[in-house]
C-alpha cells in the first residue's frame, strides 16, 4: 500500500487519494487542433521507472498533488503542490 506524504495533511494511506494520470502533459491551447489534443489525452508517457503523476487527496484536503513515484518499486521520492515544478529525474 502506498503512503503518500501530503504537503498539507502529512503522510496518508493511498486509500485517501486517487490517481489522475501523467502530470507532465500540458493541455494544448484552443487553436492547437486535434493532433495536439490527441497527444495530450492519449499518447501519455508510460515509463518503467520514475513518473510525475497527479494524485488528488480526495479524503483529505482535496488538493491535486504532483507525486514523483517509481512505477516498479513504488517508491515515492517527492510530492509537490499543483503549481510547483517537479521534474522527472534523468536516470
Amino acid at each position: 500500500m502506498l503512503r503518500i506524504p501530503c504537503p498539507h495533511c502529512g503522510p496518508r494511506d493511498e486509500a485517501e487519494f486517487s490517481y489522475r494520470g501523467d502530470a507532465t502533459v500540458t493541455r494544448p491551447g484552443p487553436e492547437d487542433g486535434i493532433e495536439a489534443f490527441h497527444g495530450y489525452l492519449y499518447e501519455r508517457r508510460n515509463p518503467r521507472g520514475w513518473q510525475v503523476e497527479w494524485w488528488q487527496h480526495g479524503a483529505g484536503c482535496r488538493a491535486f498533488l504532483k507525486v514523483l513515484r517509481h512505477t516498479v518499486t513504488h517508491e515515492i521520492r517527492a510530492v509537490a503542490t499543483a503549481t510547483e515544478a517537479l521534474e522527472v529525474p534523468e536516470a
Partner: peptide, 13 residues
C-alpha cells in the same frame, strides 16, 4: 489497483 505499475505486486486495500 488504481495507479500505473510494472511491479507485479498488489496493494492491500
Amino acid at each position: 489497483d488504481g495507479y500505473p505499475s510494472y511491479g507485479q505486486r498488489g496493494t492491500l486495500p
